[in-house]
Design a protein around this nucleic acid. Structure first.
Lengths: 333, 333
DNA sequence: AATAAAAATGTAAACGCTTGCAAGAGGGTT
DNA sequence: AACCCTCTTGCAAGCGTTTACATTTTTATT
């Protein structure tokens, strides 16, 4: 049971070669005579040798590990992104250190510190925006980083997301085309740039194009939870709104169920369109119409971009907007 | 911008002490004169020194990193566990390397190999069962490991979960009390020990206690997906079953919606109880009655247990069953 | 067969830290 | 003044690899 750690040195001795040679075959590196390679490989197998990645990391200054800062793995949107990240990470032989930040500034900073201490080769940052302080830390370090799913207001950091403004505009326009003029805008947390700037702009553009005046009372701030939505339904009920753009599925589900419970018929009396397209959209009754976002792909592409950055390859375009769609289900006519 | 890596050596020089002393203050270690400590701390601050965790790992043989093998982060059950794990991990200053296994034997093995190469201090394994081969690898290495949420058929590895047999029995008994005798058993993948042994036994015990004969045609095998459930609804419709025990929420949601779409009234004509208690249970209409499992806590407790194991503390009981409950919502009367 | 070029292998110095051991610095005791 | 502790600090040997650079072996050329 006591697997006394076998080192590269043991292998070298047993195989009658130097550790440099063993290192070479382990790394599939340069030119080693086939015969030697076979001999070494045999010993590695016999001794059950497993290269110590930590030592490797020290010597080569590469850890083949990337950090992933995520608000909450429990959030369907982010976990889907994370899955995309991990899949391509492992495809390129990287592991990911996953760290939840709760979207909190101080936690993010702390987590970043940690990740850098662990010498990660790169970082994919997920979040709804990029705080000033964090951006500073990023630029101070020379670890490549890419932002997945979020927005960087100053377009300074490589990013992959969708065009939130356009998507929102499309969704709202769809509602307008269905005859609505009183459309509630409920993107979630209005503090976040993604809502406060991008989505709001899309909403406003759609209204403007249709010649509808922007009415501030149609803008609602909310937490990204089912319960927040459920409660908001009451508030909504008291307004003249006849449709709503909602920034997240759980929130939308809450609103939908809340409204339904109050006897409102969706979509006859009230239409809803949500901004994400998680499994939830199929589960609610009626099913939620939504913007379809390629979450998994966003994560995958972000990670792929990161591998390039880590290899110091040139990135043609550091700001990718993936295509999105609009899926009509049952909460819109 | 070129933060030429400042090392412990730089700090030592600047502070006029030896690196050993710097190391001591960094590790809050042993006894260092307060004056010296202050001096060193000041330099650390000025130079913005950040200890290299990789070097530390090599020297100390501790990486303060634990591996987490998870079937799929995207699964609500597992991501909730993962969150619990990460929270207490970071509480104890550990980071987690998260690796998706897709519940595949070969992938698990590969992932494990990786984790061991990275010299993780411990592993928390999530999965529905523990494959022979993996168990072997585990016992070959001397890295502590704990199983979260799953079952170890031979009770060989520290585990934290709930009593799946008892929970299933309780749930089924509830259905029986409501007058049902034809109860479908749809735990999910019947290959998995957790279903094939534990849950099935609970189901059978409940029937037996009520004097109902076990009917094999009431046992259904299914994938853990919404669609599988939706389709299974048709099949179910054709049987004499009047109630069902379902092993997962998504699956249950599919069954519920499928049945409803066929005009079946739940719970009047058909009752459903699901085995997990994710957010979904509140979102479906009618809301799903379910067994409530402390997912987050299972993860948290498992990680806590792992910290003890890593510290070579004695574990009083390596097989923890956390309490569960039964929540009646609207799919049962 | 001699020689140059190419291929294979070895040597040893990092990489940045921890840690056992030794030694210096102050006291207090007798 | 000699001796013994206890508290601090420094020395230096690792930890297990990678990787320039040097050296040896092989192959090709004439």
């Amino acid at each position: 049971m006591e697997k006394e750690n076998v080192t590269i040195y043991d292998v070298a001795r047993e195989a009658g070669v130097s550790m440099a040679t063993v290192s070479r075959v382990v790394n599939g590196n340069s030119n080693v005579k086939q015969a030697t390679k076979d001999k070494v490989l045999a010993v590695i197998d016999r001794l059950d040798y497993r290269p110590n990645a930590v030592a490797r990391g020290l010597a080569s200054k590469k850890t083949t590990t990337v950090g992933v800062i995520i608000p909450d793995v429990t959030d369907m949107f982010f976990s889907e992104l994370a899955r995309g990240v991990d899949d391509v990470a492992s495809m390129y032989h990287y592991n990911i250190i996953l760290a939840n930040s709760d979207d909190s500034g101080t936690k993010e900073l702390q987590v970043l510190e940690n990740l850098l201490a662990k010498q990660v080769d790169g970082i994919v940052y997920m979040g709804n925006g990029l705080r000033e302080q964090l951006r500073n830390q990023f630029s101070h370090s020379n670890v490549p980083i890419v932002l997945a799913g979020g927005v960087d207001e100053v377009n300074q950091i490589p990013t992959v997301n969708i065009d939130y403004t356009a998507a929102t505009k499309d969704a709202v326009t769809k509602l307008i085309k269905n005859g609505h003029t009183q459309i509630a805008f409920i993107p979630g947390n209005m503090q976040q740039a993604i809502n406060q700037k991008y989505r709001l702009r899309g909403y406003q553009e759609a209204l403007e194009e249709a010649g509808i005046a922007f009415d501030e009372t149609m803008v609602f701030d909310a937490q990204y939870t089912y319960n927040a939505g459920f409660e908001l339904a009451n508030e909504l009920y008291a307004t003249t709104a006849t449709a709503a753009f909602v920034g997240a599925d759980e929130l939308a589900a809450g609103i939908l169920n809340g409204l339904t419970d109050r006897g409102v018929n969706v979509p006859e009396d009230f239409e809803i369109i949500t901004a994400i397209n998680t499994k939830l959209t199929q589960i609610t009754r009626p099913q939620l119409s939504s913007i379809s976002i390629p979450m998994y792909d966003m994560g995958a592409v972000a990670m792929r971009m990161l591998t390039k950055l880590m290899d110091k390859e040139n990135i043609e375009n550091g700001h990718l907007s993936l295509p999105y769609g609009i899926i009509s289900r049952q909460t819109t006519r």
